[in-house]
């Protein structure tokens, strides 16, 4: 059948095999190079022994994990227990109200207090006992801005004491007085988790901190109000790490750094109690 040529769109609907569904092109970007069969090796998890990046993880006992699970966890749960406790609501963004049409599409009012939204603090049950999530080491040394090659020494030092490759940090602002330029290396950071974290923790509490003469304990007020505890070590303190102590000619330049303990506790007080159970002394 030959239809007369027309501008009407009805003609298209009469054709057989016409789909009413619009064709979808390139809504999801696919990197086709990563779909080739050679890349399938990289899809395997690192715990798989046939994977290229296979890394045996559980090669020794995890003392800190066992100590926490066997001894500390139930004690913490009992200590933080409060009968008939209610969830303490955090500060949230607020509605302006409905009494005026001008308030309808207005962006939400800032939270009370510091103007930042905070989390709800739920009562501690067996499901949410505070635990240590990770340890973040942050090294910033002004000397690196002056001598660029010191960033290599700093990273090698952190890699040596933590067993994890640190990430290079670069300056984000220009300060002429401090000779700081954007994009220049200024330090490194690393986030330790699980076994590396526990290994670092025991080294710190059993070998390093007891030998620092000036160390009297963590400050009783430490914390960022959301349950993360911080402390700092100077370049005199870090020489007691056994990984660098006996290789002084390899690590002549040592750097102080900040250590942050990230916990699942919602308040500083809970976090401090948790940290004290892992062998950290606190000042009175």
């Amino acid at each position: 059948m030959q239809l007369a040529r027309s501008f009407s769109t009805c003609a298209r609907a009469l054709r057989s095999g016409y789909s009413t569904v619009e064709p979808v092109h390139h809504l999801v970007k696919i990197n086709k190079a990563s779909l080739k069969p050679g890349m399938t090796q990289l899809l395997k998890s690192k715990s798989d022994i046939t994977a290229i990046g296979f890394k045996p993880v559980e090669i020794s006992q995890d003392r800190v994990r066992e100590h926490y699970n066997n001894t500390v966890k139930s004690d913490l749960m009992l200590h933080f227990y409060e009968h008939d406790a209610k969830t303490v609501e955090g500060q949230k963004f607020r509605e302006w109200g409905t009494d005026s049409p001008y308030k309808m599409y207005r962006s939400m009012k800032k939270p009370r207090g510091k103007g930042k939204a905070t989390r709800n603090i739920k009562p501690i049950t067996s499901k949410n006992v505070p635990e240590l999530q990770s340890i973040v080491i942050n090294l910033y040394a002004p000397a690196i801005a002056e001598h660029k090659w010191l960033s290599v020494s700093a990273r090698a030092f952190i890699a040596q004491i933590t067993n994890v490759k640190p990430q290079l940090l670069r300056n984000r602002s220009n300060v002429i007085g401090w000779k700081i330029r954007v994009g220049r290396p200024c330090g490194c950071k690393v986030e330790l988790k699980d076994r590396d974290m526990h290994q670092f923790l025991t080294t710190l509490t059993e070998l390093v901190l007891p030998r620092i003469r000036t160390f009297t304990g963590l400050k009783p007020t430490t914390g960022d109000t959301h349950g993360n505890i911080s402390m700092g070590l100077t370049e005199e303190d870090v020489k007691y790490f056994p990984e660098v102590e006996h290789f002084q000619e390899l690590f002549p330049n040592l750097f102080g750094f900040h250590i942050t303990f990230k916990t699942t506790a919602r308040t500083d007080e809970q976090a401090r109690t948790l940290i004290s159970s892992l062998g950290f002394p606190f000042q009175k």
């Binding site: 100590h67 001894t71 200590h79 409060e82 401090r272 109690t273 004290s276 892992l278 062998g279 002394p281």
Partner: peptide
């Protein structure tokens, strides 16, 4: 009950508590 449910603040574990070896 009131006495038992009073919250204790600033409690720390004793320093003698050690991770077993």
């Amino acid at each position: 009950y009131v006495w038992a449910n009073t919250k204790q603040t600033n409690k720390k574990f004793p320093l003698q508590l050690r991770v077993p070896t």
